[in-house]
Design a binder for these strands. Structure first.
Lengths: 254, 254
DNA sequence: GCAAAAGTGTTTATGATACACCCATGC
DNA sequence: GCATGGGTGTATCATAAACACTTTTGC
């Protein structure tokens, strides 16, 4: 037991982990599909690969059975960010990812047990180079597309909303998209990802022009494979050069 | 005494309060003035009114006598932001200000007493409409120009640095400058403030053109008074209109 | 009359947008 | 041969940047 002269809140960390699912997702047991008649088809011009979020299913009360952001209590001797990474790996097996702090959420009553203040992190995992489906205990962790989210425990819907908003602003001023993508990617993959994050279609020629104008997207002598059409040129992001320019005040802008 | 099954960190809030001092500040007892010979004069083209930060002098250990950001412990039943505002008013008398959350700082050892995680807030106080010198206990609170800061307690220098960086990015995409200024202001005041925050000179004509192009800066039928030169037109910021536009996706951009 | 800051337009350069067709490949 | 996505350039428009002189006022 630990005693203090004044009351102390509990402190947790929670991670909003975004990923890009490339493989077709299994169709969920659609609990509440909104009027399928009114919206019968997805726009075929937009790539159907979706932004997804990693959730875990709680097995303890409160909210037993509900889906929630991965997270847990901060230990007394660890950095906040380290706590977030530790909890994430413990609960989902996911590691090696981009993280940034999102903010603190601490409204009294957000956890029915006691006063809990959580520090939320925004994370991005590269599902191409570090596939996690194997490491993840499939029974209680899962990837959900943003338009097929279940109800979440605690105030996690609010946190997720804030993370998404942050992701949208970040994507315009930092090259975070490459955190989602494999080392070798096609320009179309980049564009689809921007469109998925921003939720709006972009002009193909202008987009490619702008990307190439940065000088940071270097074409490789390779093309994609196993596609039923003309294969696209592969590119890589010149991270070293970006870091150097960034240190000199260069700003990514897309 | 309060007892828990697991150890709990303490949680505090700290405020980085920015202000714009209009009146000439008293010259500080310059402890470590860096080579006054090399930099003998301030650039006369840049307005000397300075961005300042509100600090308190600690009278308890740790860091007794050192200057620190105003802040304190979060109570168990209050919102984080409410705690920040409460502590700020208790310690400095300052109220009625703009606040936004900056982030959580929780490196183990940042407080020598126990594990303390602090949620930092960025605040801006309008020293024209709400002068605080009277309310502030002058013995242990004071305003410091950014280039004349004392050493700060804990990791508060780091927090202040983060706040300043945040202020600089905010000022470009939200009309926060008007939080500093009186209800009626001159365009030159706005420009000087931008220059003070961004640390770079701006072109007068382009700046005014851009401000006026927003349609949110409305000229009044009044001019400033008691100046030893031609009096400038006063303006006000049309906040209502800004809020309405903002809700429709309009972005401030300066 | 002079010092000090207010006020005012035009030109140029740069970046953003809009837009449509042919090409390569797998089936 | 056809379906599918890959790849390419130009003209227009809007925004940003550079730049210097006259006006008003207090002293």
């Amino acid at each position: 037991m630990f005693t203090y002269r004044y009351p102390h809140p509990a402190v947790t960390v929670d991670c909003v982990v975004f990923g890009l699912d490339d493989a077709p997702r299994p169709v969920p047991a659609d609990a509440d599909r909104r009027d399928a008649a009114a919206e019968p088809r997805r726009d075929p011009a937009v790539d159907t690969r979706d932004l997804t979020v990693l959730l875990i299913q709680r097995d303890l009360d409160p909210y037993a059975g509900a889906w929630a952001l991965p997270g847990g209590f901060v230990q007394m001797d660890e950095e906040l960010e380290a706590a977030a990474l530790r909890e994430l790996e413990e609960e989902t097996g996911v590691r090696d990812l981009y993280v940034e702090q999102l903010g603190a959420f601490g409204t009294p009553g957000r956890d029915p047990r006691e006063r809990v203040i959580t520090i939320a992190y925004l994370a991005i995992v590269n599902l191409f180079d570090h596939p996690v489906t194997a490491a993840t205990d499939a029974r209680n962790a899962g990837w959900f597309a943003l338009d097929e989210l279940p109800r979440l425990a605690f105030d996690h819907e609010q946190i997720l909303e804030a993370a998404l908003e942050r992701l949208r602003t970040n994507v315009r001023k930092e090259p975070v998209v490459f955190e989602f993508l494999p080392e070798k990617f096609t320009l179309r993959q980049v564009q689809s990802l921007y469109e998925a994050i921003l939720g709006e279609p972009l002009d193909k020629r202008n987009f490619r022009k702008k990307l190439q104008a940065t000088g940071l997207i270097v074409p490789l002598d390779e093309v994609e494979m196993d596609v039923a059409h003309r294969a696209a040129q592969l590119h890589r992001f010149d991270r070293e050069r970006y870091e150097a320019l960034h240190a000199d005040g260069y700003r990514w802008n897309a």
